[in-house]
Simulated assay, not measured.
Amino acid sequence: MSGMLYRLSVVHRKLDEEIRREARRRNPDGFRLLRLKKLKLAVKDRLAGHWKRAATAGR
């Protein structure tokens, strides 16, 4: 796994943990949850793009 893929996967996992932590709060901040989810989705999209390029480069 390349360094970029590793770093993106670490960021994705940390965002997931932060989303869970915020959702468990007594009064979760809806705006913060939305922002975290959008960031997580953006990281997921970048990960998918890197995997796709890596798969086509290996052919």
Rank of each mutant, 00 (worst) to 15 (best):
1 M>H: 11
2 S>N: 10
3 G>R: 14
4 M>Y: 07
4 M>T: 03
5 L>V: 00
7 R>M: 08
7 R>T: 06
7 R>C: 03
8 L>G: 01
8 L>E: 00
9 S>R: 10
10 V>F: 15
11 V>D: 11
11 V>R: 12
12 H>S: 08
13 R>K: 04
13 R>S: 13
13 R>N: 09
14 K>S: 03
14 K>L: 07
14 K>A: 01
15 L>T: 02
16 D>W: 12
17 E>W: 01
17 E>F: 01
17 E>K: 00
17 E>I: 00
18 E>L: 05
18 E>W: 02
18 E>H: 07
21 R>N: 13
22 E>G: 01
23 A>V: 06
23 A>G: 11
23 A>K: 11
24 R>H: 15
24 R>D: 12
24 R>C: 05
25 R>Q: 08
26 R>L: 10
26 R>T: 04
27 N>M: 10
27 N>D: 09
27 N>F: 15
28 P>C: 11
28 P>D: 03
29 D>G: 04
30 G>P: 06
30 G>V: 10
31 F>C: 06
31 F>Y: 09
32 R>S: 11
32 R>H: 07
32 R>N: 10
33 L>P: 03
34 L>H: 12
34 L>S: 15
34 L>D: 11
35 R>Q: 07
36 L>T: 02
37 K>F: 05
37 K>V: 08
38 K>M: 08
38 K>F: 11
40 K>V: 09
40 K>W: 09
40 K>G: 11
41 L>Q: 10
41 L>Y: 14
41 L>D: 09
42 A>P: 06
43 V>I: 14
43 V>P: 03
44 K>G: 06
44 K>H: 13
45 D>Q: 04
45 D>N: 08
45 D>F: 09
45 D>P: 06
49 G>K: 13
50 H>L: 07
50 H>S: 06
52 K>T: 14
53 R>D: 12
53 R>M: 12
53 R>S: 04
54 A>V: 15
54 A>Y: 06
54 A>H: 14
55 A>K: 09
56 T>L: 04
57 A>P: 02
58 G>F: 15
59 R>W: 08
59 R>V: 13
59 R>H: 08
